[in-house]
Design a protein around this nucleic acid. Structure first.
Length: 229
DNA sequence: CCCTGATTCGC
DNA sequence: GCGAATCAGG
């Protein structure tokens, strides 16, 4: 899968909506969680409450992930070299810190600036578009971007059945019932590690090969077994 | 264990 | 540009 404009748009939308990278990856399909995060960063979408981000500016530069193989202790000008030149990544954008205007004249007579950098309250509507408050004029909101509303498919969670959308790497994918039927769902138990099914269903999926003659009639297979044409 | 996002770096 | 591998916190 490649990052088409559409998929990028979906990514942005969902990212801004606060969906996790995993959810986005799952929704887009064909990409990993890492791919989503990587793309998000490359797009400049940034800053999302990260569990690993609490710490800030430790005196020691972040430990290099990979100690240079076995050479060049030289001042490697790697990617993270730029100290503070361009409008690089604003680590913590906010920080209004308006220059303390009147240093000397401490006259309390300057009610000019209420100094209230009101945090913009933005809510997100379905589809990921941003709502504005009444007074929030920001004229050129996206000039009617062709933002497509994403179908809210996992909305009506049907019972506690494990649906196709609930399947993950570690959920038993043994089908129960038949596709198309109203109550068709998947087993949903934790898998037998290394297999797509839980222990119980592995037992049904993988039968020991018995010696000829002692074969037992094959157990029912998912979907009624291989179709014979 | 599971999850999360951030970062690096070979491709 | 991409994303797997890795790190690191919850």
């Amino acid at each position: 899968m490649s990052w088409t404009d559409e998929r990028i748009d979906q990514l942005k939308s969902m990212w801004e909506k606060g969906l996790t990278a995993s959810q986005i990856a799952e929704e887009l399909g064909g990409v990993s969680r890492n791919a989503v995060i990587g793309k998000a960063h490359r797009l400049g979408l940034q800053s999302r409450p990260s569990p690993v981000k609490a710490n800030e500016a430790p005196k020691k530069a972040a430990a290099p992930r990979k100690p240079a193989p076995a050479a060049a202790p030289a001042p490697e000008t790697s990617r993270a070299a730029a100290p503070a030149a361009q409008p690089a990544a604003p680590r913590h954008a906010a920080a209004p810190a308006p220059a303390p205007a009147a240093p000397a004249a401490a006259d309390a007579a300057t009610p000019q600036q209420p100094a209230a950098p009101q945090p913009r309250i933005i809510s997100v509507g379905p589809g990921g578009f941003l709502r504005q408050g009444p007074g929030d004029q920001q004229a050129p909101i996206p000039p009617a971007p062709p933002r497509r509303l994403v179908p809210a498919k996992p909305s009506p969670e049907i019972a506690d059945k494990t649906s196709l959308l609930d399947l993950t790497e570690r959920i038993c994918k043994w089908p129960v019932g038949h596709p198309g039927e109203p109550d068709f769902h998947f087993c949903g138990e934790p898998v037998n590690p290394g297999f797509p099914y839980c222990v119980e269903h592995c037992g049904r999926a993988y039968q020991a090969q018995l010696p000829r003659g002692t074969r037992r009639p094959p157990p029912p297979l998912p979907f009624g077994g291989p179709r014979v044409r």
